[in-house]
Design a protein around this nucleic acid. Sequence first.
DNA 1: CTGAAAGCGCTTACAG
DNA 2: CTGAAAGCGCTTACAG
Lengths: 335, 335
Amino acid sequence: MNEPMGKMTISDVAEALGISKTTVSRAISGKGRIGKETRQKVQNYITEHHYTPNVIARGLAQSKTYNIALVLPGDYYLSELPFFQNCMLGISRAAGEADYDVLISMVTGEDLSQLQRVVEYRKVDGVILSRTLVEDQPLQFLMQHHLPYVAIGSTREKNVVQVDHDHVNACRALTEHVLMQGFRRIALLGGNCNHIVTQQRYKGYQEALRQAGMKKEAGPVYFDIEDEVTVEKIADELIHRGTECILCMDDYICLRTLSVLTRKGVRVPKDLKVASFYNSQLLKNQTPGITALNFNTTELGEAACRMLIRMMNGEEVPKHTLQDYELVVKESTRV
Amino acid sequence: MNEPMGKMTISDVAEALGISKTTVSRAISGKGRIGKETRQKVQNYITEHHYTPNVIARGLAQSKTYNIALVLPGDYYLSELPFFQNCMLGISRAAGEADYDVLISMVTGEDLSQLQRVVEYRKVDGVILSRTLVEDQPLQFLMQHHLPYVAIGSTREKNVVQVDHDHVNACRALTEHVLMQGFRRIALLGGNCNHIVTQQRYKGYQEALRQAGMKKEAGPVYFDIEDEVTVEKIADELIHRGTECILCMDDYICLRTLSVLTRKGVRVPKDLKVASFYNSQLLKNQTPGITALNFNTTELGEAACRMLIRMMNGEEVPKHTLQDYELVVKESTRV
DNA sequence: CTGAAAGCGCTTACAG
DNA sequence: CTGAAAGCGCTTACAG
């Protein structure tokens, strides 16, 4: 109570108890042999006097930081996606349980400086990549260093530990569902081609079509849709071509599509069906309800973080983990 | 090239150059007197051999961590708000410029454990609170410790350094605008009462009414709107009462309101005007365009972080900083 | 079961 | 201008 909070050291404890620092250290960490009584004595003292170890000092001695880095896209529109927030929540939770903290490093375009600083300065024991790209600079960077890391998302690099949602099967399932409803002219509105997830979704879509015995694409497929103007043009084209159903690769694209359709007086699902390969808060309150794929992103983050912690502890872990999805059918695809 | 990256220490450099560790340290930090040539020699060597200092060790010696903590709400729906992401982006940017890293600690409800761990373990040199509450446990916690911190948002606690948007004047301006258009029956749909920002927005609204000589509230005021069901009920009431304009305290509430109105066949702005006290990506692509207040959240985060850095450097800083707003008038309030 | 000592990789008075 | 030494607050062989 007298000493200012946060200043007490292990030496103070040792002195007060008339024992050595070594013993105190052991009593706290639980490592090494130590008498039951002694340990109890130390334990009592430190809780009573609110001693908390200096993790930095411990880290230096152990060559550990008890920090992990989370690499996040620093681009404006991307950072707003709920996906990353929810991931972060899960990661933070899992990290906390293991007494780790998470440090964020924003990577914007070609600028890897934040990630570099964090690994070169040895401020973290491991890294989590929040997404994977076709041309993946952060991943390339990590592959050159000997620091444990896991990728949320998939990649072709075989030796990278990856934790992902099963996008391919999920998208296949949703596409199959639409095919089962009897629709054939099914358009696909896709996101950024440099995102691996875009490739996976496309693959799922194609697989469903192939299985249904359709030789070529059922409807036109678009990629790299970023703004509403593009959607506007595409919508005209689709309506003109008599499209029956529009599959949107993510919630943002879907929201924009719905907004454009409403403006054009096209009714969903009456005139046109719509579904989304990704669900979120954004779509939740939409009228009519939107058929979409549900993924638990927080759990994904947790899983990735647990994986990383196991790696940092020297355990062997599976290279590729897939998490399940949920297909939620609502009015937007009703016949 | 021979030595494994990230293992070189200051001693290695000293030895290779035949000088002392002290000198090397000085050459790197730039502190203390040192010969120009010597410094150059060291500088050349370390860039050539890719030496990077161990920041943990430096931190221990200096009793600094070069980390700051960002306290984020861990609640589901809240963490999805773009506000926090954009703040984080700004903070991360400003921190990086000063060679600091940002560590996140999620605070969920009553659970402050993540924040506690981070400060008790001395893993950060300062803390940023991403929002302020009426009943503010994280703030109370920080006030008890002697660690620099700044709050994004306002609080009644006079001695807390706070950086905020000028919500009161912004909301007053928007309300005035609507009054100028000639509307009188103006309803307010408010958010969580425990958020200080809710109080500020309400205050701005009231001030505008008072100034316009209206004794009592122009339209009904609601608080704690969290889901669409509530909005649904309120909408019926408002329509019944002949409300002319609905002011929504934030983008989420606004989006829900619009969705409900569309479903009910109420046309905006023809039948009813709508405006929002907060703008974001969510509202950007809405049809019709929504009159709203724009705030630059990334800049807010940057400002808060710079402030904290100054505090950590022992500088005096102003207790209360307000950032400007922008009123964007669009179709949703057109007469 | 316990302790003295060296070490983690830096910084910083102090002395020269 | 430069260096030897102590110190930051822990951990961990090594010895007893």
